[in-house]
Each structure stands twice: as structure tokens, then as C-alpha cells.
Design a protein around this nucleic acid. Sequence first.
DNA 1: GCTTTAATTAACCTGATGGATAATTGCTGT
DNA 2: ACAGCAATTATCCATCAGGTTAATTAAAGC
Lengths: 231, 231
Amino acid sequence: MTAASTRKPAGDQPANVRRRDREKTKAEILQIAFEEFAENGLLGANADAIAARAGITKRLIFYYFSSKEELFIAVLEMAYGRMRQAEESLHLETLAPEAAIRRLAEFTFDFHQDNPEFVRLVAIENIHRARHVARSETLQQMTRPIIGQIERVLAKGKDLRAIRPEVDAHALHATLNALSIFSVANRHTFEAQFRWDMSSPEAKARQRAEIAEVLWRYVRSDAASPAEDED
Amino acid sequence: MTAASTRKPAGDQPANVRRRDREKTKAEILQIAFEEFAENGLLGANADAIAARAGITKRLIFYYFSSKEELFIAVLEMAYGRMRQAEESLHLETLAPEAAIRRLAEFTFDFHQDNPEFVRLVAIENIHRARHVARSETLQQMTRPIIGQIERVLAKGKDLRAIRPEVDAHALHATLNALSIFSVANRHTFEAQFRWDMSSPEAKARQRAEIAEVLWRYVRSDAASPAEDED
DNA sequence: GCTTTAATTAACCTGATGGATAATTGCTGT
DNA sequence: ACAGCAATTATCCATCAGGTTAATTAAAGC
């Protein structure tokens, strides 16, 4: 597609005239690269395709992001940044222990359900043994403050004897992420093998409730329920 | 069954003379392709590399498996077959409910820990939206009988009032798989971001216990005590 | 207006890779 | 011992895709 033919007076930006806007162009590349990487993986994603979809030349991609891997890292940074931002809107501190745990579970589940591209991206990065995360200072310092929130919820819950004292924030976070991510990431093999729907709204609602239940039953104090001898 | 076993030994096999053994060659290709696919993904795996490692010509790969995708399907079939085989050695029926659940949890966790290539392969297949599983009759009929085992454990547990009546076998299986797979598949991003070890023997032991705990606390009846106290 | 700089484009290069063609060679039954 | 066939090899090829070289052009400053 050739650009630069019709020249509109441009109250708004005409789509076919290349506006020289560094930041906007970079952002567009990033967003489309995000989608392409999530869809096709690090190797499968294609610079020509990204350029075509962004309406720019391939060269421009390498101009702003020096290599495919650098672009991938930038995409990861953006994707993780969005999650982090979403997590900031969670305010668990004000809630009672059970409500806080359930809200945390449902929020995490919802986020992954709503952002399957992000889940795919994380899976892809894990296939590559997280070598891009390892290479990015930004991504490592981006260690999510969600752990802090969880710790506070647990502390409060333990104080109130609603939550078992042994429960660890990291472990809880891992468990919750495992359940939430799995229901998006491994949906396909599961559905194909068990003919078990994981994608319909009803199925999702069921899983959402299930995960909250698993989590709460895991953390809640035994005193509030059956007596039990621990290992 | 081919008459391959009637081959005369021809002395000792010189390493550089290709032994004409259809089944053996196919099996070798499969095993090496399994490793290469698990390591590098569907696109990343390289036919030349597989051939080189197997000590054969690339052409031979396409002779036995008509395309790369077919080879990948064959690899999936082999890998899932192995898991299924392992699952057969589980005998949960004889155990008491809690013991059965814990054994199931630990077995599943161990299997994934011991077969990270399998876990990677499943992740890769999910990135491809399980289109190869969908294409293979074999893989779909290979629906694992583990579900049956779980159902029997749950039925017995419910009978004894040790397990809640609402617990579903599929959901339980999904939960367990989520936790087990996650601790292998998403280990890398997790470790990189949280500087949290998931790979050392101690960490694995901790996770193993954790998962059994999560599972049991999820299924156990609210009324009954864990010591199978019938009222 | 002219210069300078930075954003953008067009065209090219090159290594890799899946797959194809065709020749060859070892096994097995007769 | 030899034909026939199946297993295996050596080579070639077209295409794709990441990255590069060099020219072009929009905008900001003087």
C-alpha cells in the first residue's frame, strides 16, 4: 500500500499520511507487536506482518527497537506494566479476611480471563525460560506489589484467627496464579481431550467460584471449621 | 508386527553403518524429535538438527513422518501415551479417602516435576491452540482413565462422609493439574520476577506438600474430622 | 527560505529451513 | 544368486524472514 496520495486538510490525522510522531509510532508498533507475539510466539511473529498491520515499513521497527528480541522485551514490559496497573486498583486492606481472599481470587481470575494475550505471552516467555525477563532490569524491578497486599491481608486474617498462621503469601500467590493462568493457558488441550467446556460464560463463572472456594478453604483457620491434625 | 526381530546380528553393529530397522529408526527419530520440540517449540525445532542428532538424513524424517506437523503429532501421541501409562500404576481404590487424595496429588506433582519436557510440550501445544490434538483421533480417544479413578475415590469419600458431596472429578483434576503444571511451566518467569526458588529439592518438597494440602482441604467434608470419624 | 536533523521509505542481502528429486544400497524370500 | 523392495543418502531448491544500506522527506530552528 502506497502512502502519501490524498492530502486532507487534516483537522484530524488522515490515516494514509505518515505523521512523524515518535511516541505514537512506537506505541502503535508495541501494541501490534504485542498482539502478534501473543498470537504467534517469538519465532512465529513476523516483522513484515507487524509493519504491514501498523502501516509502516519494517525498517521502522528496527529503527525504534533494535532487534526482534528487544521488541519482545519491550512488549513484555508493557504487558506486565498493565497488569501491575490493574493490581493497583485492588484495595484489599479494608475488607474482612474472607471477603479479601475471595476478592483477590476473583480479581486475579478475571484479569487473566480478560487478557488471554497476556497469558499467552507469559507462556511463551516461559518456553524461552524467561531469558528476556532476566535481561530486563525494568521487568525485574517490576516485582509486583501485590505480594505486599497479600501479606497484609494474611497478617490481618491471622490476627483475627480467621486464617491459619502457616499460610505464606508467596505460596498463596503462586497457587492463585496457577489456577487462574491454567484456566486460560491450558484450556485448549483440556477441552480437546476431555470435551470439557472451559470457555463459555457459565463455565467461567463456575471456575471463578471454584477458585475462590479452593483458596479460601486453603487459608481459613481450622478453628472456624473441622478440627484437624496437621503434619 | 513386522518380522524385524529375525534379523541376523551381523556381528557387532559398526556405528557408522546404518542398520535398516524401520521401527527402531522411527523410535529414535521420535525420541529425539520429542526432545527438540520440547526444547525449541514447533517452529524452533529443526529437521536438520533432529537428523544430525539421530545420525540419519533429514530425508528419512519426511520418509517416515510426512511433514513436520505430522512428526509433532506423533511426538504428542508418544508423550501423552507415556503419561497415561504412568497413571495406570496408580492404585487409589484401596486407599482411604484422605490417603488417596494425597497420593493422587503427590503422584501428579511428581510426574510433572520428573517430565518437564512433557510439560513444555503441552504448553507449546496450547500456544498452538491444541490444533494437533484436535487433528489426531488417537490423542482424543486417549482421554485419560484417571478421571475414572478420581470419580471412584470421590464416590467412596462421599459415602464415608469424608469428602464434600459437591466436589466434581473434572474440577478436581483441573485444579490438581493447574498446580502441578504451573510449578514446572511457569517456574521461570516466577523465579525471575520474585527471586523465589521453585527448583531446589527443598522448594519442590515444600510445593509438593502444599499442593496435597490445598487439594485435601478443598475436598474434605466440613462436618467430618479427617480421622474418618463417622457420626 | 535554507539548513539540519530525525522519521520514514524502498530495495537489497543472506542464512536458514522445510521439503522435493533421484540415486543407492542393504535385506529377504525364492 | 538375484530380483524386488524398503531403507537410506546426497543434493538441490524455493521461499521466507531478520536485518542492512542508502535514499527521501517532514518538521523545527534560524
